[in-house]
Design a protein around this nucleic acid. Sequence first.
DNA 1: TCAATAAGGTAAGTAACACTTACTCACAAT
DNA 2: ATTGTGAGTAAGTGTTACTTACCTTATTGA
Lengths: 182, 182
Amino acid sequence: MKAFSLLMSEKDFHSITTAEIARTAEVTEGLIYKYFKDKKDLLYQVLNEHFFEFQAKIENRIANEKTCIEQLEVIIFSSLESYTANRIFSKILLLEVRNSLDFFESCAYEMVRKYTTTILSIIEKGIETGELKPETDPHILRKVILGAIEHACLGEIIFGREFDIDETSTGIANIVFNGAKA
Amino acid sequence: MKAFSLLMSEKDFHSITTAEIARTAEVTEGLIYKYFKDKKDLLYQVLNEHFFEFQAKIENRIANEKTCIEQLEVIIFSSLESYTANRIFSKILLLEVRNSLDFFESCAYEMVRKYTTTILSIIEKGIETGELKPETDPHILRKVILGAIEHACLGEIIFGREFDIDETSTGIANIVFNGAKA
DNA sequence: TCAATAAGGTAAGTAACACTTACTCACAAT
DNA sequence: ATTGTGAGTAAGTGTTACTTACCTTATTGA
């Protein structure tokens, strides 16, 4: 997994060969298949490992906030932070796993679901308490928030283009909560 | 390209074999390589074809709108419409091409850039004319809009889950322009 | 104490796949 | 008549993910 992560920072999943992984890990190719079902399984496991830490950190932070808007701001900030701090994790999650249907049956996807479900319930609570407009569609608000986060990170992952997390985070929150219309 | 498109509606890029493409097109495998550099090139060409129509339609519609907000609303609606009307195009653009760096050097990506540049200049004009808040960061607003559009379509592409274009479109516009905060 | 079992590891495959090569044929243009 | 070109093919080739059969060294339980 360490060898694979290293290679993932250099090139994309498909151009990494099993021979290369074995050579980097200083074992033989066959051994990989003692521990992993296939190459994709290795990918998912690496994703899982990173995602676990991400999940733990973010849930902790959410618990510290009171208002719905503050919680969502924490989610936006923490997601951006995690994505930029861990390029391999981001690359796998945003670019690699999605084009294979079997990911959506993996346990890693279960964690993604849990995370997005949390977001949805925060939004719903916000509408109930009157923090958010009553006509807000929770699913659409979630799509806007998640889409914005992911799109913001793509440039970084693909081109290595850096961005200011604070600035982007408050920028997204500002548009999503206050709107861009004058 | 027709054969490939057909196969793309059934499975993902990587599980389509050259043999299968050839069989579907009723030619031999070798002939594919007379017209396309490699399998990826075929993918990019199909994307290009679809993208061309998309671009033409959308530019036309934008020209018919006067205000910046109306133009952006047209972009949101038309993008959702195009993505849902053309699942193969969407699948390639949102899931397949991104994980390969050479896409970003292809002419297809040039068209994507042109499209996103148009969006940016509409936003900038909106800030100038006072339609949008002066403190709006144009790049971030673009990220939020594009991210929301793309994220909204992912569920449809991946799970075949359908959604109401009008509802989603006005929902996104509502959040982005008016904000979700009460 | 010692065989049985399992854990860690390897070398040498194999089938499938993307892609190449060397060729044929039809048919226009010179 | 000859030459060049575009369309097409059959039969490869090298690489790649994955498998098999085997070896070695600990651990364990009767």
